[in-house]
Design a protein around this nucleic acid. Structure first.
Lengths: 224, 224
DNA sequence: CTATTGTAAATTGTCAACAATATGCAATAT
DNA sequence: ATATTGCATATTGTTGACAATTTACAATAG
């Protein structure tokens, strides 16, 4: 690692932030399942640090709705039931509509190219039936849309909700060769509508897309 | 203080939570102005505790978007410019619409009575021209609406945005005898529409109400 | 055998001390 | 006079230790 990079790291990164990022990553990736207790001392010694920064990271995760404190009993990864997941979706739906409007309105050559690239990669994963990779690109596509609204508050609010949704067990939709092709089609249409800068249509499409996801979530959780 | 209360406090409250609540209260009340540096040691000794819980509270406030860390330089109350305030409003507007729908749909005799009481109190403050008190009741009215949607995620998301807006200097609208009467009229109409359980009208009214607030915010900040 | 009590281990809550970094100011050199 | 260097002070970042609470389990009484 070169000197300027190291300096920048030391100037910006604290142990607290590192722990926070690492734990959030593990939770979002499903490595730390909802309900798992997180013990300060264990995490601290694993990372070779003291308990202070771990506790600070816990407080940040608590505010993000990813873990829950129970005084004197410790911290556990938050568990979401179907009702809570549906409530989050209820908030997400109008935000997706807003994202559709703004991203279509604010589209630049750079963001257009970036979105196009992701859709193209999605097409390739469908061709080779790489469902896990498709799922990741799906998240990325929607994350980029939120980012390209150029509204940090919207992006932040949106991300909060999406990360919390990962605490619901059957959130990640189990794609099969049939549904994945339909999903690809839908995302291509969304991209084209945004690329055409059709604000009203983008808004309607993304709202409907979120509503459909909610329906699938209900169906999936009732069948299991 | 009686024993059961004390026990409940000890079982649930930690120093971290107390510090967090106290600081958030001071920030929201405008006692700690945007840009103010917060020194750990000073706050700790003021409250008669050590720096640990204060740091944890800082991390929580950071995640709520109320303070900002600068490594090795400390924490300051976050400052919002007009653009950021408008971006927050952009998110708030569709949420207000959703609140209108849900609160009209979910209205119970209890919530109805509670809202009616607040509107009545607002009327009294207008009669006696108590503008600060009216402003407080105004916040309370909208907070209750969000709460009565019975969607904790929506309430949480909404509160985040509203608290952050208080970081913008000219957020609290300066009422005068003319505008306060108009505002009261508007809130009475909102209440009546919700009481009539007119979902579509409640949605439209609250969206428009939020949009009008945004316009006033722009006007107020340009004139100052 | 069941229920209760007591005790030990583990874990969290809090604190105080140490290390590292930034800030302000005086001294010096150009 | 201005800029730079060096030092003292203040503040944050991190750590390890102590206090308080919970949990698990064994011992005891009924």
């Amino acid at each position: 690692m070169n000197a300027p990079e190291t300096i920048k790291l030391l100037r910006t990164q604290s142990l607290t932030n590192l722990v926070h990022e690492e734990l959030e990553r593990r939770i979002a990736a499903g490595q730390l399942l909802p309900g798992t207790p997180l013990r300060e001392a264990s995490i601290a010694t694993d990372l070779g640090i003291s308990r202070g920064p771990v506790r600070e990271a816990f407080r940040m995760l608590e505010e993000r709705g990813l873990v829950e404190f129970e005084k004197n009993c410790g911290v556990r990864v938050r568990q979401l039931d179907l009702e809570q997941a549906m409530q989050i979706y209820q908030v997400r739906i109008p935000l997706e509509a807003l994202i559709g409007e703004l991203v279509a309105h604010r589209l630049t050559p750079e963001t257009h190219a970036s979105l196009q690239q992701v859709v193209e990669q999605m097409r390739l994963t469908v061709t080779r039936q790489d469902i896990p990779c498709y799922t990741e690109l799906n998240f990325l596509f929607h994350d980029l849309l939120a980012k390209y609204t150029a509204n940090p508050s919207l992006y932040d609010t949106y991300r909060r909700l999406v990360v919390q949704l990962k605490l619901f067990r059957s959130y990640t939709f189990r794609h099969n060769p049939e549904t994945i092709a339909l999903s690809l089609q839908e995302h291509q249409t969304i991209f084209e509508t945004i690329a055409a800068r059709d604000i009203a249509a983008s808004k309607a499409l993304l709202r409907q897309h979120a509503q459909d996801s909610l329906i699938r979530l209900q169906a999936a959780s009732q069948s299991s």
